[in-house]
């Protein structure tokens, strides 16, 4: 009994969440030991999750920021660079 690369890809979420039954987990461990592409694939899958966890918020677009400030009746100018002419 063996798993294919495709099956590894299908099971990655459960594998990382440690939700696989031990027999299945062992099969994946075994496959990942010997398969470089799957190892890279797993690292990248995990990297997507990790990077997105700390994704920073971009500032508001300048034009929208001033429109919104006006609409909300804010006295302060938006904390952005001065408009360029």
């Amino acid at each position: 009994m063996n798993v294919t690369c495709k099956q590894v890809a299908e099971l990655l979420a459960d594998y990382l969440n440690e939700e696989l039954e031990s027999e299945q987990k062992n099969l994946l461990d075994w496959h990942l030991c010997g398969c470089v592409p799957c190892k890279i694939y797993l690292v990248q899958y995990r990297e997507v999750i990790i990077t997105c966890r700390k994704l920073p918020d971009a500032p508001l677009p300048t034009e929208f920021s001033s429109r919104l400030a006006k609409l909300l009746g804010c006295k302060e100018p938006p904390p952005q660079e001065p408009p360029t002419e």
């Binding site: 690369c5 299908e10 592409p37 890279i40 694939y41």
Partner: peptide, 19 residues
């Protein structure tokens, strides 16, 4: 579909390269 990147035998089609 990401799972189309595997052939009928379940192997990766093409190379999986590190980023």
């Amino acid at each position: 579909d990401p799972l189309d990147n595997f052939d009928n035998d379940g192997h990766h089609v093409g190379h999986v390269r590190p980023w």
